Simulated scan of single mutants.
Amino acid sequence: MEIKIDDLSGDQVARLIGEHLQSMELHSPPESIHALNLDKLKKPDITFWSVWEQEELLGCGALKELNAHHGEIKSMRTSSQHLKKGVARKLMEYIIQEAKRRGYRRLSLETGPMEAFAPARKLYESVGFQYCGPFAEYVEDPYSLFMTKEL
């Protein structure tokens, strides 16, 4: 598996982000969807990575800088053909190390409480994220759970 910074210009990445957004629409009302589209992922405060095995896209994830000491995990997604192969874990560990390298003291994320998000929550818990209240611009929402990790 190769993890690399991605400029979000490739068709495979666009399709995976599209799949991610469609999945969010299936499980959350529109006002509770916090997933970012391609244009929003291209903002200068976000670094986006893709995970590849030769020419095949396995997954993706992003890190948004909230401030000099706090980052947010965004757009974690494994391609449906590569679930349960360790793609998300490897990328999550990579992003955690990058956050530490940047000097962040905390990483946070928003996810859903529904059963569809259970595998993601299990992964986040396994790497040390704990449940917390809303952070940054988020507000309490029955369709959102918030997690954070001290680095």
Rank of each mutant, 00 (worst) to 15 (best):
R89F: 15
A99D: 05
K74Q: 09
M92W: 13
Q81S: 15
L66Q: 10
H70P: 00
L57F: 14
K85Q: 15
G59H: 04
R101F: 03
L107W: 05
E72A: 11
G71N: 01
L109D: 06
T111Q: 13
Y94T: 12
A116N: 14
R105P: 00
E55P: 00
H82K: 14
T78I: 01
K74L: 09
I73T: 05
A62Y: 04
Q81I: 01
A88D: 08
T78F: 00
L91Q: 05
Y94Q: 08
S79W: 03
F117W: 12
R106Y: 10
R106T: 14
G61M: 02
L107C: 08
Q54G: 05
E65C: 05
A68M: 04
A62F: 01
P119N: 12
H69M: 03
T78M: 00
A68E: 13
A99Q: 04
Y104I: 00
P119D: 07
R106M: 10
E110A: 01
L57G: 12
E65Q: 15
Y94R: 06
Q54L: 02
E56H: 08
K100P: 01
S75L: 11
G112T: 07
K85C: 09
L107R: 01
A116Y: 13
K84P: 00
A68I: 05
R77I: 12
K84W: 01
H82I: 01
L58H: 10
G59T: 02
Q97V: 05
S79C: 08
L91P: 11
Y94M: 08
S75E: 13
K85D: 02
Y94S: 14
S108L: 03
M92S: 13
Q81E: 15
A120F: 12
N67Y: 02
R102G: 10
P113L: 03
M92K: 04
I96G: 12
